[in-house]
Protein backbone atom coordinates (compact mmCIF):
# COMPACT_ATOMS: atom_id res chain seq x y z
CA UNK A 1 0.00 0.00 0.00
CA UNK A 2 1.29 3.44 -0.91
CA UNK A 3 1.52 6.00 1.88
CA UNK A 4 -0.18 9.36 1.80
CA UNK A 5 2.23 12.27 2.14
CA UNK A 6 -0.67 14.63 2.68
CA UNK A 7 -4.12 13.60 3.78
CA UNK A 8 -6.91 16.13 3.25
CA UNK A 9 -9.92 15.05 5.31
CA UNK A 10 -13.34 16.61 4.79
CA UNK A 11 -11.89 20.13 4.73
CA UNK A 12 -14.37 22.98 4.75
CA UNK A 13 -13.62 26.65 4.53
CA UNK A 14 -16.02 29.53 5.17
CA UNK A 15 -15.31 33.23 4.90
CA UNK A 16 -17.34 35.86 6.66
CA UNK A 17 -18.42 38.59 4.22
CA UNK A 18 -20.67 41.62 4.66
CA UNK A 19 -23.43 39.63 2.92
CA UNK A 20 -23.16 36.67 5.27
CA UNK A 21 -20.92 33.62 5.39
CA UNK A 22 -19.43 32.53 2.09
CA UNK A 23 -18.85 28.79 1.81
CA UNK A 24 -15.74 28.34 -0.33
CA UNK A 25 -14.73 24.74 0.24
CA UNK A 26 -17.45 22.25 1.06
CA UNK A 27 -15.82 19.09 2.28
CA UNK A 28 -12.67 18.29 0.31
CA UNK A 29 -11.10 14.87 0.84
CA UNK A 30 -8.05 13.64 -1.01
CA UNK A 31 -4.86 11.73 -0.23
CA UNK A 32 -1.67 12.84 -1.95
CA UNK A 33 0.56 9.84 -2.57
CA UNK A 34 4.21 10.22 -1.54
CA UNK A 35 6.30 11.37 -4.48
CA UNK A 36 3.34 12.17 -6.70
CA UNK A 37 2.80 15.32 -8.71
CA UNK A 38 -0.76 16.50 -8.23
CA UNK A 39 -2.41 19.41 -10.02
CA UNK A 40 -5.48 21.18 -8.70
CA UNK A 41 -7.62 22.68 -11.45
CA UNK A 42 -11.04 24.30 -11.53
CA UNK A 43 -12.84 27.38 -12.74
CA UNK A 44 -11.64 30.84 -11.66
CA UNK A 45 -12.58 31.70 -8.09
CA UNK A 46 -13.50 28.13 -7.17
CA UNK A 47 -11.14 28.09 -4.21
CA UNK A 48 -7.95 26.50 -5.58
CA UNK A 49 -5.70 29.07 -3.96
CA UNK A 50 -7.71 28.85 -0.73
CA UNK A 51 -6.99 25.12 -0.62
CA UNK A 52 -3.32 25.83 -1.25
CA UNK A 53 -3.25 28.32 1.62
CA UNK A 54 -4.66 25.63 3.89
CA UNK A 55 -2.03 23.16 2.67
CA UNK A 56 0.80 25.58 3.47
CA UNK A 57 -0.62 26.31 6.90
CA UNK A 58 -1.16 30.00 6.07
CA UNK A 59 -4.84 29.57 6.94
CA UNK A 60 -6.77 27.13 9.08
CA UNK A 61 -9.82 25.25 7.78
CA UNK A 62 -13.23 25.96 9.30
CA UNK A 63 -13.76 22.22 9.67
CA UNK A 64 -11.90 19.04 8.82
CA UNK A 65 -8.17 18.49 8.97
CA UNK A 66 -5.02 18.12 6.93
CA UNK A 67 -2.53 15.49 8.07
CA UNK A 68 1.11 15.80 7.05
CA UNK A 69 3.67 13.25 8.24
CA UNK A 70 1.15 11.90 10.76
CA UNK A 71 0.52 15.30 12.31
CA UNK A 72 -2.42 17.62 12.04
CA UNK A 73 -1.36 20.76 10.20
CA UNK A 74 -1.18 24.04 12.13
CA UNK A 75 1.25 26.38 10.46
CA UNK A 76 3.74 25.62 7.71
CA UNK A 77 4.88 21.97 7.94
CA UNK A 78 8.54 21.05 8.09
CA UNK A 79 10.09 20.33 4.73
CA UNK A 80 7.71 22.62 2.84
CA UNK A 81 8.85 24.69 -0.12
CA UNK A 82 6.76 27.10 -2.18
CA UNK A 83 6.91 28.63 -5.65
CA UNK A 84 4.41 31.40 -6.29
CA UNK A 85 3.16 32.94 -9.51
CA UNK A 86 4.47 36.40 -8.80
CA UNK A 87 8.22 35.85 -8.60
CA UNK A 88 8.90 39.60 -8.43
CA UNK A 89 6.96 39.74 -5.19
CA UNK A 90 8.25 36.54 -3.69
CA UNK A 91 11.98 37.14 -4.26
CA UNK A 92 13.73 39.92 -2.39
CA UNK A 93 15.09 42.65 -4.63
CA UNK A 94 17.59 43.73 -1.97
CA UNK A 95 19.28 40.34 -1.81
CA UNK A 96 21.44 38.64 -4.41
CA UNK A 97 20.28 35.39 -5.96
CA UNK A 98 22.60 33.51 -3.63
CA UNK A 99 21.27 35.21 -0.49
CA UNK A 100 17.67 34.79 -1.64
CA UNK A 101 18.18 31.07 -1.97
CA UNK A 102 20.16 30.82 1.25
CA UNK A 103 17.60 32.71 3.34
CA UNK A 104 15.30 29.77 4.22
CA UNK A 105 18.40 27.75 5.14
CA UNK A 106 18.97 30.00 8.15
CA UNK A 107 16.65 27.78 10.11
CA UNK A 108 18.79 24.74 9.44
CA UNK A 109 21.93 24.14 11.37
CA UNK A 110 24.33 23.83 8.50
CA UNK A 111 27.71 25.48 7.94
CA UNK A 112 28.27 28.43 5.64
CA UNK A 113 30.27 26.28 3.26
CA UNK A 114 27.39 23.82 3.14
CA UNK A 115 24.90 26.58 2.44
CA UNK A 116 27.06 27.82 -0.42
CA UNK A 117 27.29 24.30 -1.77
CA UNK A 118 23.53 23.83 -1.64
CA UNK A 119 22.91 27.14 -3.40
CA UNK A 120 25.35 26.12 -6.09
CA UNK A 121 23.75 22.71 -6.58
CA UNK A 122 20.26 24.18 -6.71
CA UNK A 123 21.27 26.80 -9.26
CA UNK A 124 22.90 24.11 -11.39
CA UNK A 125 19.74 22.02 -11.21
CA UNK A 126 17.66 24.88 -12.62
CA UNK A 127 20.27 25.78 -15.24
CA UNK A 128 21.44 29.02 -13.68
CA UNK A 129 24.95 28.08 -12.60
CA UNK A 130 27.11 31.10 -11.84
CA UNK A 131 24.21 33.52 -11.21
CA UNK A 132 24.90 33.75 -7.46
CA UNK A 133 25.89 37.40 -7.45
CA UNK A 134 23.12 38.75 -9.67
CA UNK A 135 20.11 40.53 -8.24
CA UNK A 136 16.70 39.08 -9.17
CA UNK A 137 15.68 42.20 -11.10
CA UNK A 138 18.71 41.81 -13.34
CA UNK A 139 17.28 38.51 -14.61
CA UNK A 140 14.45 37.76 -17.02
CA UNK A 141 11.07 36.60 -15.70
CA UNK A 142 11.76 32.97 -16.56
CA UNK A 143 15.14 33.12 -14.87
CA UNK A 144 13.60 34.67 -11.75
CA UNK A 145 11.12 31.84 -11.56
CA UNK A 146 14.06 29.43 -11.88
CA UNK A 147 15.59 31.19 -8.87
CA UNK A 148 12.33 30.59 -6.96
CA UNK A 149 12.52 26.91 -7.89
CA UNK A 150 16.18 26.79 -6.85
CA UNK A 151 15.26 28.35 -3.50
CA UNK A 152 12.62 25.65 -3.08
CA UNK A 153 15.06 22.86 -3.93
CA UNK A 154 17.75 24.19 -1.60
CA UNK A 155 15.69 23.39 1.48
CA UNK A 156 15.52 19.74 0.25
CA UNK A 157 11.74 19.77 0.61
CA UNK A 158 9.47 16.83 1.23
CA UNK A 159 6.53 18.81 -0.10
CA UNK A 160 6.60 21.35 -2.89
CA UNK A 161 3.63 23.65 -3.33
CA UNK A 162 3.31 25.80 -6.45
CA UNK A 163 0.62 28.39 -7.13
CA UNK A 164 0.29 29.12 -10.87
CA UNK A 165 4.06 28.94 -11.17
CA UNK A 166 4.25 29.50 -14.92
CA UNK A 167 1.36 31.92 -15.42
CA UNK A 168 3.51 35.05 -15.62
CA UNK A 169 6.04 33.98 -18.26
CA UNK A 170 5.87 33.83 -22.05
CA UNK A 171 4.84 30.63 -23.86
CA UNK A 172 8.33 29.47 -24.81
CA UNK A 173 9.65 30.01 -21.29
CA UNK A 174 6.62 28.19 -19.99
CA UNK A 175 7.51 25.03 -21.94
CA UNK A 176 11.09 25.29 -20.69
CA UNK A 177 9.97 25.63 -17.08
CA UNK A 178 7.52 22.74 -17.41
CA UNK A 179 10.34 20.52 -18.64
CA UNK A 180 12.54 21.80 -15.82
CA UNK A 181 9.87 20.72 -13.35
CA UNK A 182 9.73 17.27 -14.97
CA UNK A 183 13.50 17.00 -14.64
CA UNK A 184 13.33 18.02 -10.97
CA UNK A 185 10.66 15.39 -10.49
CA UNK A 186 12.84 12.72 -12.08
CA UNK A 187 15.84 13.79 -9.99
CA UNK A 188 14.21 14.17 -6.59
CA UNK A 189 10.67 12.75 -6.61
CA UNK A 190 9.35 15.48 -4.34
CA UNK A 191 5.64 15.30 -3.49
CA UNK A 192 4.27 18.26 -5.42
CA UNK A 193 0.97 20.12 -5.41
CA UNK A 194 0.38 22.66 -8.12
CA UNK A 195 -2.55 24.97 -8.71
CA UNK A 196 -3.00 25.90 -12.34
CA UNK A 197 -5.71 27.13 -14.67
CA UNK A 198 -3.93 25.52 -17.62
CA UNK A 199 -5.46 22.10 -18.23
CA UNK A 200 -2.83 21.03 -20.78
CA UNK A 201 -0.10 21.90 -18.33
CA UNK A 202 -1.80 19.98 -15.53
CA UNK A 203 -2.18 16.93 -17.76
CA UNK A 204 1.37 17.14 -19.04
CA UNK A 205 3.02 17.34 -15.62
CA UNK A 206 0.86 15.36 -13.23
CA UNK A 207 0.23 11.91 -11.83
CA UNK A 208 -3.19 13.04 -10.66
CA UNK A 209 -5.34 15.98 -11.64
CA UNK A 210 -7.91 16.99 -9.02
CA UNK A 211 -10.84 19.00 -10.36
CA UNK A 212 -12.63 21.35 -7.97
CA UNK A 213 -16.08 22.50 -8.95
CA UNK A 214 -19.13 24.11 -7.43
CA UNK A 215 -20.05 26.68 -4.79
CA UNK A 216 -18.99 25.56 -2.27
CA UNK A 217 -16.30 23.63 -4.11
CA UNK A 218 -16.02 19.86 -3.89
CA UNK A 219 -13.79 17.38 -5.69
CA UNK A 220 -15.74 16.77 -8.87
CA UNK A 221 -13.20 14.44 -10.46
CA UNK A 222 -9.79 12.89 -9.91
CA UNK A 223 -8.10 12.02 -13.20
CA UNK A 224 -5.16 9.65 -13.07
CA UNK A 225 -2.65 10.60 -15.74
CA UNK A 226 -1.00 7.26 -16.48
CA UNK A 227 1.09 8.56 -19.35
CA UNK A 228 4.63 7.20 -19.42
CA UNK A 229 7.63 9.10 -18.07
CA UNK A 230 9.81 10.68 -19.35
CA UNK A 231 7.29 12.92 -21.02
CA UNK A 232 8.01 15.18 -23.95
CA UNK A 233 6.32 18.32 -25.17
CA UNK A 234 5.85 16.83 -28.65
CA UNK A 235 5.15 13.14 -28.12
CA UNK A 236 3.19 13.25 -24.88
CA UNK A 237 0.99 16.06 -26.06
CA UNK A 238 0.31 14.21 -29.35
CA UNK A 239 -0.69 11.00 -27.58
CA UNK A 240 -4.40 10.39 -28.19
CA UNK A 241 -4.81 9.44 -24.53
CA UNK A 242 -3.44 12.87 -23.56
CA UNK A 243 -6.21 14.38 -25.66
CA UNK A 244 -8.84 12.17 -24.02
CA UNK A 245 -7.67 13.10 -20.53
CA UNK A 246 -7.48 16.80 -21.20
CA UNK A 247 -10.96 16.70 -22.75
CA UNK A 248 -12.34 14.93 -19.70
CA UNK A 249 -10.73 17.49 -17.36
CA UNK A 250 -11.88 20.36 -19.56
CA UNK A 251 -15.48 19.22 -19.42
CA UNK A 252 -15.34 18.84 -15.66
CA UNK A 253 -13.81 22.30 -15.21
CA UNK A 254 -16.50 23.83 -17.41
CA UNK A 255 -19.20 21.85 -15.61
CA UNK A 256 -20.23 20.13 -18.86
CA UNK A 257 -20.34 16.58 -17.52
Amino acid sequence: MTTAAISIRDVRMDYPTPDGVKHVLGGISYDVTEGHYVSIVGPSGVGKTTLLRLLTGLAQPTAGEIIVAGKRLSGAPEGLAVVLQDYTRSLMPWLTVERNIALPLRNEKISKANVRQRVKESLTEVGLEGSERAYPWQLSGGMQQRVSIARALAVRPRILVMDEPFASVDAQTRFDLEDLVLKVRADFGITTLMVTHDIDEATYLSDDVVVLYGKPATVSDIVSIDLAFPRSQVETRNDHRFAQMRTRIYEKVRGLS
Binding site: L80, D86, R89
Partner: peptide, 29 residues
Protein backbone atom coordinates in the same frame (compact mmCIF):
# COMPACT_ATOMS: atom_id res chain seq x y z
CA UNK B 1 5.68 45.29 3.08
CA UNK B 2 4.41 43.04 0.33
CA UNK B 3 2.15 40.38 1.94
CA UNK B 4 3.26 37.88 -0.71
CA UNK B 5 6.82 38.24 0.52
CA UNK B 6 5.81 37.75 4.13
CA UNK B 7 3.69 34.71 3.28
CA UNK B 8 6.57 33.21 1.34
CA UNK B 9 8.72 33.62 4.44
CA UNK B 10 6.04 32.07 6.65
CA UNK B 11 5.86 29.06 4.32
CA UNK B 12 9.61 28.66 4.81
CA UNK B 13 9.00 28.86 8.56
CA UNK B 14 10.92 32.09 9.09
CA UNK B 15 10.05 33.69 12.41
CA UNK B 16 8.77 37.19 13.15
CA UNK B 17 12.26 38.52 13.83
CA UNK B 18 13.55 37.18 10.52
CA UNK B 19 10.58 38.70 8.74
CA UNK B 20 11.43 42.11 10.21
CA UNK B 21 15.13 41.78 9.55
CA UNK B 22 14.96 40.47 6.00
CA UNK B 23 11.64 41.76 4.66
CA UNK B 24 9.99 44.54 6.64
CA UNK B 25 13.04 46.71 7.29
CA UNK B 26 14.49 46.57 3.77
CA UNK B 27 11.01 47.15 2.45
CA UNK B 28 10.65 50.23 4.65
CA UNK B 29 14.11 51.44 3.62
Amino acid sequence: TDPTLLETMRCYRMNAFQQIRYARLPSAA
